[in-house]
Each structure stands twice: as structure tokens, then as C-alpha cells.
Amino acid sequence: MSLQFVVDGLLTGSMIGLGAIGVTLTYSILRFSNFAHGDFMAWGTYATLTVVGAIAAMFGKVAPIAPLSFGWPLIVALVVGAAFTALLALLLDKVLFSRLRKQEQAIIAVMGSFGASMALRSLLEFIFTSRPTYFSRAIQIAMPVGFGIRITPDQIALLILTAALVLAVHLLTTRTQTGRSMQAMSQNPALARIAGIDVASVVRVTWVIGAALACVAGVMIGVLVQIRPLMGFDMLLPMFAAAILGGIGSIPGAVLGGLIIGLAEAGAVQLIGAEWRAAVSFIILMAVLIVRPIGLFGVRER
């Protein structure tokens, strides 16, 4: 048997994990399940693609950074795309979510996010059509690294990027005043206000982090797989599964949950067959929740 599924699983898991950070933050701080999170991913990816196109129009063809398949335009475009996605999330919060979050029942905001998800997706199909597209059509040669595993330079770069981003977000939320304010909001919003925390600014930071990471995850999918308007929506269930598996509210948990689901899916494809892909990750999710209902890193509510 080949260990190739480990690399595939880590890559899928990274995409799921980065997306799940936003899901878990939205759930624990804003207190609703944001079903539009997957569509932030897709919008971020198309925004990045558009900027790449604009840069190509302005500067002509830019040589990729050897041995990667992409050059500086994609890196610049990713930063712009992440900023755009953050603005999109803030805008949606202003016109929609902030109103729905005021309602007593969380289900109202959840259904609102479902509507936003469908609207965002349809709009994307309207603008870009539903035909798949790519950042680069160049074929990368995968390098053998032993144990029957082959990996491309792009894959290595994106795994490093994921690790760096996860570490940065973890440090931000545990070591900075902003992060402590976010924790405070998730543990006791009323006391957070009393302690002088400006709730509106914590809400903004939460959206910005979640949306920017969603954009990065989407661009990863775009670089390694393909770009489609449905790409984010298809990630929605794995992302929620990862967030729940890791323990809602926990950033390391969301990432670990993503990696477990990614590895399980990739392993299932190799060992059982591709049609079992989604089923296996959910069987694992259910098994973990039976043993540990609060998830791996979850904390029991008082």
C-alpha cells in the first residue's frame, strides 16, 4: 500500500482546517453557524483570480518563482483577495447578520446565512459561469520523497503557509489583548462588555480573521485542484465536521479536526474507494462524538 494518501490527506486537511477556523470562531464568538462561510472561500478565490488577471493585463506575463507554478502576482493577489473577502464578510454582517444576530433564536441567523450562501453562489455563477477554471494550467512534476510518497513544490509551499497561518492565528488569539478579548466574548459576552471590551470591534476582528483564512483555503484549492463557484459550498460539511470534531471554539481543534477528516477521506479513497470518501469522515465524526461529545479540544459549558 502507498502512503501517498498522507500527503493528499494533509493537503485536503489544511484546506478544511483553515476554513474550519472561521467556522469555529463565528460559532463561539458570534454565536451562530455561518453556512455562507464556504462561499466566502469561493468569493475570495475568484477575487484573487480576478486580481491575477488584472496584474497580467498590466505587467504582461510574469515568470513563476521556480520551482513553483505561480509567481509574485498570485501572492499579491492573495493578499488583495483576502482583504476583499474580509470586506465582503463585514459588509454582509452590517446589512444582514448583525440584524439577525440580535434575534433571540440562533436558528434565524443560521437560516439567514443559508440564504446568503445561495445568493453569493448564484451571483458567482452569474459573473464567472459555472465552468471550472485554473490559476495555472502548467503541470507540476511531483518529486518522490521516499516511502512511495510524491509531492509537488506547490504542495510543500502551501503546507508551510498553512502551518505559519495557524501558528499566527493561535498566537494572536492566546497572547494578544485582541485575542483575550475574543476569548472573553466567547466565554461571557455580558461580562466582556462590563470589563470594557468593545464588542463591535471584536466582532469585526472575528469576521476579518475568518474570511481571510477562508480566502487562503479557497486559493489553495484553486492552485491544487480547480476553481468553481461550488468549491466553497462543497467544503461546508467537512469544515463544520472539523470544527465540531476539534471542539467548537478551539482553533487548534479546528485544524486538527480538519487534518483528521482530510486524512480519513484520503485514506478512504485509497483503501475503500472514492465513493466512500464523505461517509468515512462522518463515521469518524460520529464515533468521536459518541466517546467525547464536546469534541477533542472542546470545553464543557459550566
Binding site: 483575550r180 476569548q183 472573553a184 466582556a192
Partner: peptide, 11 residues
């Protein structure tokens, strides 16, 4: 200082 839930329990 509220009567109950006046600390952040998981910090």
C-alpha cells in the same frame, strides 16, 4: 461586579 458569572471561567 455582577452577582454571578463574574469571571471568565476558561481563562
Amino acid at each position: 461586579v455582577p452577582q454571578t458569572e463574574n469571571v471568565f471561567p476558561r481563562m
